[in-house]
Amino acid sequence: MSLAACLLSVAVVHPPPGASLGCLRAAGRQLEILREPQLISEATSILQRIAAGDRQAVAECIDHFGGLVWSLARRFLPNPTDAEDATQEIFTALWTHAGRFDPARASETTFVAMIARRRLIDLRRRQTAARRPEEIPLSIDVPQDAAPPTLEIREEADKVRAAMAALKPDQQEAIKLSVIDGFTHGQIAKRLDLPVGTVKTHIRRGLGRLRDRLAGRGAEGVST
């Protein structure tokens, strides 16, 4: 049975007893489809205005990057209360470090995401150390849709995807599993059937190449 047929017969039509997720995973590998990114819109210099003392820019910062920070927090932290607390901490850090934003090095959206990710990675590390079964909440909030992306953000996302596409497949996969899915090196090694050291090398070299390409340095000094 082909992998695609496996998906059709196992997952969609009539799953037989004994079917496993491995079959579904394998089927999905053939049917992977590129997703259209949906990013929030980006202003030009909200953080610089905050650093300059513009009070109105603080509210604009919340409205402009709130969806991005909140979505990141929800992805990193399953507990909504933790995600709310983290969102407040992240915005506090943004207001504190707004003066560090340099438009020559990254877009505001990327800078905001960097500040958010650092805090969330730290929180997730602490929570993972004492992982327990997920509590089922008594109620959940039905989320509201995020704002649609602007042309500028779409263009930036295109640039990042192009830089990703230039990486080796193993590097792409390791970075996606680490950055997007939040897996540890050990989990990625298990998924990709690679030694942990190789996974770490793929991530380091892949991020290094991305760093150079996004900084306009092309492939200079890059080795595999």
Binding site: A113, I153, E156, R161, M164, V179, R211, L214
Partner: peptide, 9 residues
């Protein structure tokens, strides 16, 4: 920044 750019994109 590279990881954040990938995440956002």
């Amino acid at each position: 920044l590279a990881a954040a750019a990938v995440d956002v994109a």
